[in-house]
Measured scan of single mutants.
Amino acid sequence: MKATFQVPSITCNHCVDKIEKFVGEIEGVSFIDVSVEKKSVVVEFDAPATQDLIKEALLDAGQEVV
């Protein structure tokens, strides 16, 4: 499964690193693409990962998800 999250609070590479760390810890996540320019995060994943778990990880990383 693939999901795109709009994350307007992404401003720098530190944000990218933190997002990759938090989302990458979720079992089932196979790909993460964070774009500072587009302020988006694209995640490819399989169970047990879910969109809700990914959104929670983004929030835990200090990001706003819309």
Rank of each mutant, 00 (worst) to 15 (best):
A61I: 07
L59V: 09
V29D: 00
A57K: 07
V23I: 10
D46F: 14
A49D: 01
E64K: 11
V16T: 05
F45N: 00
E20V: 15
H14Y: 12
S30C: 08
T50R: 04
E56D: 10
H14V: 15
E20D: 05
S40E: 13
L58P: 03
I19A: 01
H14E: 15
C12D: 13
E44N: 09
H14W: 11
Q63M: 15
V43Y: 03
S9M: 08
L53E: 07
E20T: 14
P48E: 01
F45W: 13
G62M: 13
E64L: 13
F31D: 04
E64A: 08
E37C: 07
G28S: 02
I10H: 02
G24F: 09
C12E: 10
V29Y: 03
L53A: 13
V34F: 06
V65K: 05
A61Q: 03
G28L: 02
E64Q: 12
K2G: 04
V23W: 03
K55R: 14
I32F: 03
V66K: 08
Q51A: 14
V66Q: 09
G28N: 02
K18D: 06
A57P: 00
Q6V: 12
H14A: 15
V29L: 02
A47Y: 13
E64P: 06
E25A: 15
V66G: 07
S40F: 11
K18S: 07
K39L: 07
E56N: 13
I10A: 04
D17N: 10
V7G: 02
V43L: 03
E44W: 15
S40V: 14
V36Q: 05
E37S: 11
L58V: 03
D17C: 10
D33M: 13
F45Q: 00
D46Q: 13
V65T: 05
A49H: 01
V41L: 05
E56L: 14
G62T: 10
L53H: 06
A3R: 05
A61W: 07
T4D: 04
I19G: 01
E56Y: 10
S35C: 07
M1K: 11
H14L: 15
S30T: 13
E25Y: 08
A49Y: 04
T11W: 15
E37M: 08
V16Y: 05
I19F: 03
A47L: 12
E27F: 09
K55N: 06
H14Q: 15
Q63P: 04
G24R: 12
A49V: 03
K55F: 13
S35R: 06
G62A: 07
P8C: 10
V66L: 10
F22G: 04
D46T: 14
T50K: 01
A47F: 14
A3L: 12
I26P: 02
F45Y: 14
V42S: 09
K21Y: 09
E27M: 10
S30E: 06
V42D: 06
T50D: 04
A47I: 08
V34L: 04
D52W: 12
G62D: 06
L59Y: 09
K38I: 05
V65G: 05
A49R: 04
K2P: 01
F5M: 00
Q63G: 05
E56Q: 15
P8E: 08
E44L: 15
S35G: 04
D46C: 11
A3K: 06
L59R: 12
K18F: 07
T50I: 02
I10K: 00
Q6W: 15
K2C: 13
K38L: 11
D52Y: 12
K38C: 11
P48L: 00
L53W: 05
V34M: 04
L58S: 03
